[in-house]
Design a protein around this nucleic acid. Structure first.
Lengths: 103, 103
DNA sequence: ATCGTAGTACGATGATGATCGAACTAGTGA
DNA sequence: TCACTAGTTCGATCATCATCGTACTACGAT
């Protein structure tokens, strides 16, 4: 058992400005859309992005610290999952609204 | 009749990244909340903000160009109105989700 | 006309942040 | 133990942007 959850804010610590700021960046929005398509979670590196690994890590950290996604380890992999329940509880409709945008 | 509408994107020109980026700034979120409380529109200068007039103008321009609000002149005043219909049509649930956040 | 008020435009500045390469950590497997 | 892989962290750099003061425009009233 080598799985562990990376630090993230509790539901009541999530601030809407942080969430919106996190989502208002094209690369991060791409990540969120990929997570939305895969409820079981996605391995970070499997999302195709026009940035290097370190930039990718930076964006994932930003999203995690904003409370948008949760990351747990799986061996050397890191699996990220969208925090749908928490976001829906805090801001009902926000996620579906964003995801319904024809990109 | 001296009323005229300031330039703004058509509904189909609104991009979700621009909207989210515009909303992800505390001062601008304050403006949006004030507009949401006043469906008839609000005179720009009547919203209490911790910034100068020029910064206020900058934020209002950002929100207008993102498609979040509409501004029309009324004499020397400028009245801003939230573009609820357009936003709801493009991103159903997004606005209500954001506004339901206990600030 | 002149003045006052509401707001914008411009230029400068300082802060934030997106990006990268390089060095590092941790887990897997030979 | 020794590589290999996945990912993070650090420091630097460059771009974006929030902020301000000042100068400007537009409208209304005297």
């Amino acid at each position: 058992m080598s799985s562990k959850v990376l630090p993230q804010p509790e539901r009541d610590e999530i601030r809407v400005e942080a969430v919106l700021q996190a989502l208002g960046e094209p690369v991060r929005l791409t990540i969120v859309r990929a997570l939305a398509d895969n409820p079981a979670g996605v391995c970070c590196g499997d999302i195709e992005l026009p940035v290097t690994a370190s930039t990718r890590a930076h964006h994932l950290k930003t999203l995690r610290e904003a409370g948008v996604l949760s990351t747990h380890t799986d061996g050397t992999r890191r699996i990220s999952v969208l925090r749908r329940e928490d976001l829906e509880a805090l801001y009902p409709g926000l996620l579906t609204g964003i995801l319904s945008a024809k990109q």
